[in-house]
């Protein structure tokens, strides 16, 4: 900060890099609670940042397979295995899975969205072997019975693997390695606060003109020269790029204005 406006960044290593404009791709909580000193921000803005809801709800399994698992419900050779496969037996099952999250547990019968991309792109796995990507809901960031432990993480993974195995009898025998990611790992490895994959929940109070903070939905931070371009901003998460594109046009507009005056 120089003269009330953003002037650059300091890396963790201490190196300082100067710039006219700083754009944060971090979520709104990390951006304003961890990289900017509170004294530079309006207190009511900070209060709204603190209450920004960013609860993690999903986990991920990356599974290395010795071969293509067989799903008896899908005829042999069907293109269906090449697409998205969902385990979503009933609406009640989804609802009960969510009930578990509300109680601070991972879903006993989770909703699963899985893909075996190595069928389409064989370079993703050694010859004849396969890679399965499994998205799992619900998995809370905070457990009601205490911190996440490696044992609990394994138990969560086993729940998911058992669920898939119900639909694929030879699935378990084909597993070479399973990488289990709870919201905790997602936060630690990718930097997504609480493991929320959208950098903030997509509920009405945090959508459109309310995203991320009412009154600050145009990518401009309350600090001059500082902008936001992450999934915390409109229109939100998913691999979309729209927040980045929108932020860039806001910045370019401001820079042009600054030049012309």
């Amino acid at each position: 900060m120089r003269g009330g406006r953003a002037a650059g960044v300091r890396l963790a290593g201490g190196e300082e890099i100067k710039a006219r404009v700083v754009v944060s791709n971090l979520d709104v909580r990390r951006t304003f609670l961890e990289t900017v000193a509170p004294k530079h921000l309006p207190p009511e803005f900070l209060a709204q940042v603190r209450r920004f809801k960013i609860r993690g709800s999903s986990g991920k399994l990356n599974i290395a397979l010795d071969g293509l698992p067989h799903f008896p419900a899908i005829p042999h050779g069907s293109p269906c295995t090449r697409g998205d496969m969902h385990v979503t037996d009933t609406i009640d099952m989804l609802e009960r899975a969510y009930d578990d999250w509300k109680e601070g547990r991972w879903s006993r019968a989770p909703y699963i969205d899985m893909l075996i991309p190595s069928q389409i792109d064989p370079t993703m796995a050694p010859n004849g072997k396969h890679y399965m990507s499994v998205f799992v809901q619900y998995c809370p960031y905070k457990l009601a019975d205490g911190e996440w432990t490696p044992q609990k993480r394994q138990a969560f993974g086993d729940t998911v693997i058992d669920t898939i195995a119900r639909h694929s009898p030879d699935f378990k025998d084909l597993i070479l390695h399973a990488e289990i990611r709870t919201p905790h790992e997602i936060e630690a490895e990718v930097g997504l606060t609480e493991g929320n994959i959208f950098q903030g929940e997509l509920t009405f109070d945090q959508l459109l003109f309310n995203r991320p903070i009412p009154g600050y939905a145009q990518y401009r931070a309350p600090v001059r020269g500082m902008y936001m371009c992450g999934a915390s901003t409109h229109p939100g998460g998913g691999v979309m790029g729209a927040p980045g594109a929108n932020a860039a046009s806001a910045i370019l507009r401001d820079l042009r204005l600054a030049q012309s005056t």
Binding site: T203, D205, N210, P214, G215
Partner: peptide, 22 residues
């Protein structure tokens, strides 16, 4: 007014537990 209007448009679609927790 700006403040109340923003708050109404923010909380109008919320669930009451999130509101009360805030």
């Amino acid at each position: 007014g700006r403040c109340d209007m923003r708050e109404l448009l923010r909380i109008g679609g919320m669930n009451v537990q999130d509101l009360l927790d805030e």
